[in-house]
Design a protein around this nucleic acid. Sequence first.
RNA 1: GGAGAAUUGUCCGAGUGGCUUAAGGAGCACGCUUGGAAAGCGUGUAUACGGUUUUCCGUAUCGAGGGUUCGAAUCCCUCAUUCUCCUCCA
Length: 424
Amino acid sequence: MLDIKRIRNDFEDVKERLQTRGVKGEELNELKDLDEKRRELIQESEKLKKYRNDVSSQIAEKKRNKEDATDVIAEMKKVGEDIKAIDSELEQLKEQIDNIAAGLPNLPHPSLPVGEDEASNVLVRKWGEPVTFDFEPQPHWDLGTDLGILDFERGAKVARSRFLYYKGLGARLERALYNFMLDMHTTEHGYEEIIPPYLANDEALYGTGQFPKFKEDVFQIKNHPLTLIPTAEVPLTNYHQKEILEEKDLPKYYTALSPSFRSEAGSAGRDTRGLIRLHQFNKVEMVKFSKPENSYDELEKMTNNAEAILQTLELPYRVVLLSTGDTGFAAAKTYDLEVWIPAQNTYREISSCSNTEDFQARRAMIRYRKESDGKIEYVHTLNGSGLAVGRTVAAIMENYQQADGSIKIPEALVPYMGGVTEIR
RNA sequence: GGAGAAUUGUCCGAGUGGCUUAAGGAGCACGCUUGGAAAGCGUGUAUACGGUUUUCCGUAUCGAGGGUUCGAAUCCCUCAUUCUCCUCCA
């Protein structure tokens, strides 16, 4: 949620910057008009309420003195009706305003490349060299099926397409990976480990920005007002929903492993095979609550934390700064980490690290008390994958495959695999 | 799932329709007092929105949302959460 006062005061600037994210100017003009109308009505309503409060205490006084107050009571009845009429109009206005405001994306950080889509993204850095194979590298779904460690057919039979069974050392590899990631974040990067709820209510999903605009992307539970989380960002960020934190406790770092459930509406036909695009996948998520002045340093650090995982696994990757048009709804600035996928001969997204500034904090009411003057301000919230586990399994399988279809286990993972050095 | 009780400010806690601008206490901050501390005394101690512009003023907020009333912390309805008992369960 953007600050309505900021929209009011820096109208042209906000409008210009939001237009780089695909927001229509007329929408903002309408918002501005509604806001002005609302403020006028607030004044009217409050004036009447003041009057009613004053007269009501006079009535009380009269009653105590056993005087007659019939006339004034009759008048107040009328005033009460007027207030009710204005307030219901106000409520409608508020709803219209919220409908627009809740659908506005975050303001892009000035450092973002301006552009409509991923074509305008900027390469920040590259790490590692893609392996060269002296044989034709196979896609991970063929490797996994042949080795009997991934079973997509049965996943489709029991759930539907885009679900799978991991089996044997495949399941072990997935488990090894997320344990490795959690250990690294908790022992080396300073995150506190959390196991959150995997279902969340509408308020939580509103808080992080999935609702109301992106309802079609999630799975909702029939007959219950609950939604399967599309990312642990939802329960982690909303952990401090409606709280006032102490400045001395900031920054706070949390990490959690959770499944992520996504309906993938609108991506029919894309990445239909393999571990890249599933309705359910495990992800280790990182979330930070930061003071505003430090949040961009924290974003760099968080991105480095995700990179450290890839580096330790010795997987080649690159870091990309997303353009205004490609940046997600809640984010002010996002770095994507893309890992090398040999069989596709390209880099694929494996992590996304974002600073939402106070966008989510406003929606979820997450604030902190400053030590210097005791004033209360919104915190900045950050989130990043560290990493998407399924896609990491895919990357390892493809990058570490051998000519005979077996898969070598990255050195850092061997202890987590109980000493297993390859899957064959 | 059934029955009952509860939810008031940072905390404890009073409050069954108007002298409540939420009593009283604790805590915290500042000041007085003191050689220093404690005690004592005094003052202050929320959030949001709107107006004003650095000072105030107004409105709203007693778990949430509705309703009754000239007027609601207080009466009515719905919901949430917590506790106790029963039932079930990993």
